[in-house]
Amino acid sequence: PPQTPIRAAMNSIQQLRGELTSVSDKPSSSLIVYFKNCTVDPSDEITSRVEQLGQVFSQKFAQAVGQRCEGLGKKRFTLGVQLYYKVMESILKSEEKRLSVQNFSKLLNNATFHTSLLACALEVVMATYFGSCVKNGGDESPETDLRFPWILDIFHLHAFDFYKVIESFIKAEPTLKHDMIEHLGRCEQKIMESLAWKTDSPLFELLRQSREEGLGEQAEPPAT
């Protein structure tokens, strides 16, 4: 039978949970092999960062939605961590194939990469649950505050750094549903249209570097 919007949203939630039931909220054996192959083993940093961001997430979630929902926040965060490790493993496998490299020490010791990847995984979880609120007309729902870019604010993450993981995240997670990919696309647009141009954005440094590097090259003649 045709699905009501609420049923469709509930299905998304069940599907997300179903996808992740067999995924642990700890690094898998394949991930541990990648960690061990690093010049500097990032395992402890990764574990302590997840713990620390988990406390931030639960606290901010409870502040936004209500203290009695702290447990709910923890559950959402755990789902996010499961998805984070799942996508990280998939990204590393595809990078290994693309670059014929097994030592990802620089990437796996890059705190911004991990925070962005976990933020993206949590954004997918939040949007999946928020989808159920919006579909039943719950615009007034306290979860409205948790919409993007809430996750960037609580993790003090630059939008441009979050933007860098989106495409790889979508490529690495083929089970992402169409409406979720669309949602991430909208996040990307929002970043490019406004969030990435905030005064402290790393985008400006990148533009400055490329301009300096570009000085050696001839600028393209203007199109007639």
Binding site: I91, S94, E95, R98, L99, F104, K106, L107, N110, T112, F113, K164, V165, E167, S168, I170, K171, L176, H178, I181, E182, L184, G185
Partner: peptide, 21 residues
């Protein structure tokens, strides 16, 4: 996927985006 516009070139990936290539 159909509606997402992939922009990375063949030789680009997350390692390059985070200057870890």
């Amino acid at each position: 996927s159909r509606d997402y516009h992939f922009g990375l070139e063949e030789h680009e990936g997350i390692s390059e985006l985070f200057d870890c290539d």
